[in-house]
């Protein structure tokens, strides 16, 4: 199993470790620890389940074991994010805000990778993990729930919030950089929507 199924996931585990740690040296150590732990516990792997999901679980547990302090820091950020006044008021507004100038969202493709990665890495870890596991690694809600050891409903909520923060931050960046034209007059748009 290890040769055929686990080792081919080195790239995915490395990506995940890199985004968790935000540090290449730390990520390299974490990848090695993950595979050594997986090898030592290979009899615990359940055949038929996705090995990538199992490796992510080990990787994350190792990371949390070593990184208790930054987890507390993230908890503070999350608390702040939960109170973000932009929260519900800006929900779904990125599409509406951009719809008159770029309804197909072509501007997303013109935002440089470095900026997108920067914003992903700036997310509180709970949101970052959910977004990466879903949108980059294509795990199902249930697989993500297993990796993060939370209910499926929590996965949905974290995905929703993480994606929303990313949409807003990247849209604001795209406007500031002229990647998409600035809204003509947000007040006028709002008045038009209210009147519709």
């Amino acid at each position: 199993m290890f040769q055929e199924e686990a080792l081919p996931e080195l790239d995915a585990v490395y990506r995940f470790a890199l985004r968790l740690t935000r540090d290449t040296d730390h990520a390299r150590d974490l990848v090695q620890e993950t595979f050594l732990r997986a090898w030592a516990n290979r009899e615990k792997y359940t055949p038929g389940t996705r090995v990538k999901s199992w490796l992510f679980t080990i990787c994350r547990n190792q990371f949390l074991r070593r990184d208790g302090r930054s987890r507390r820091h993230d908890a503070l950020i999350r608390e702040f994010a939960d109170q973000d006044p932009r929260g519900t008021s800006r929900e779904a507004t990125v599409f509406m805000a951009a719809a008159d100038r770029d309804p197909e969202g072509t501007f997303w493709a013109r935002i440089v990778d470095e900026k997108i990665l920067q914003e992903i890495e700036a997310l509180p870890s709970e949101f970052r993990e959910a977004v990466l596991l879903s949108d980059v690694e294509s795990l199902t809600y249930q697989e993500i729930a297993n990796v993060l050891d939370v209910p499926v409903g929590t996965v949905k909520s974290r995905l929703f919030r993480g994606r929303r923060i990313l949409r807003e931050q990247l849209y604001d960046y795209a406007v500031a950089e002229g990647i998409i034209a600035a809204p003509r007059d947000p007040g006028a748009d709002q008045a038009r929507e209210d009147g519709a």
């Binding site: 080195l10 790239d11 990506r15 997303w108």
Partner: peptide
């Protein structure tokens, strides 16, 4: 249109965060 917009957003995430490969030394 909203579906297409969201797909473009997710594609950008995947493109940016899904390209790293494990260095040969690791």
């Amino acid at each position: 249109p909203a579906v297409r917009f969201e797909r473009a957003f997710r594609k950008a995430l995947e493109r940016s965060a899904g390209v790293d490969s494990c260095p040969e030394s690791v």
